[in-house]
Simulated assay, not measured.
Amino acid sequence: MLAAMREKKRGQLIAQGAAVFGFAFLGVLAVLNENVAFGPLFFLLSLFYLRKMMKSPRVEKEDVESCPGDNPEAIKSELLQMLEYYRRLLKSWQWIALFGWILSIALVVYFPSLIVTVTAALAAYSTYAFIRCRQAVRRIENSPAFSGKGGLPSSAAD
């Protein structure tokens, strides 16, 4: 278990640890308020992120070996698929981060309590994920595979 955690990046561990702590804290608050619906739900989410944090990152050997190094069109099509995927993730994380920060500010203004730290931590995690997706999109768009003839197709550039 600890070896799997050592293989991960520090930022990823911090983000997943914040999610584990945040959902566990929400679960404790829900149980203390005798909320039988949300308490178990938050504990399940906490266990999910704990399991995700303890899992070792896998690199599929087949994926590495099947990289089409001689076929630039295959590389370009794979990069276009990755670009589309990361653009969808980018939009999702953008809205989640925005909602999280708005919720955190509203809680500070209208209901100052400890729950604000949890929502702010979750908003910070979604902001981190948004930034990472934006970096991935930029790297794919600036990759050498697209800088040759034609560059990005017009449908992928929008």
Rank of each mutant, 00 (worst) to 15 (best):
L2G: 15
E60T: 09
F146H: 05
Y49A: 05
G27L: 02
S126M: 09
A15H: 04
S46L: 03
V118D: 06
L89F: 01
T117G: 13
K76R: 15
R138C: 03
S126I: 07
V108P: 00
I102A: 15
S56K: 14
E141C: 12
F42T: 08
E73P: 04
L114A: 10
A19K: 13
R132Q: 06
L90A: 13
V108Y: 10
E7H: 07
M53T: 11
W95S: 14
I75H: 05
Q12C: 04
P144G: 14
M53H: 07
V64N: 04
D63L: 13
T119F: 15
K91L: 12
C133S: 12
G39I: 06
A121I: 02
K8S: 02
Y110V: 15
I131H: 07
R87E: 08
S155I: 11
F42Q: 12
F99G: 14
F25M: 15
K61S: 14
S77P: 02
A15N: 05
D63I: 05
L122A: 01
R138Y: 08
P72K: 15
R134M: 11
A156F: 02
L32W: 08
A156Q: 01
G39N: 02
G11I: 03
E84I: 00
E65F: 14
M53D: 05
V36A: 10
A145E: 11
F48M: 06
P144L: 15
E60K: 12
F43L: 14
D63C: 07
S46M: 04
I14E: 10
L83E: 00
T127S: 06
P144S: 15
V109G: 00
S147A: 15
D158S: 15
V116A: 10
V118T: 07
G150I: 07
S147W: 07
L79T: 01
S77T: 10
E78W: 08
E65W: 12
V109C: 03
V108A: 04
S143F: 10
F146W: 07
Y128C: 02
E141P: 05
V28S: 13
I14N: 07
S56N: 11
L152Y: 07
K76V: 09
L89C: 09
I96F: 07
V116K: 07
T127V: 03
A120F: 03
F146Y: 12
P57G: 10
V36T: 12
R132M: 06
F146G: 08
K76L: 02
M54Y: 05
P72D: 14
P72M: 13
N142C: 04
Q135D: 03
D63P: 03
L152M: 09
F146Q: 06
E34K: 13
M5P: 03
T117Y: 13
Y85T: 00
A97P: 01
E34P: 03
I105T: 09
S143N: 14
A129F: 04
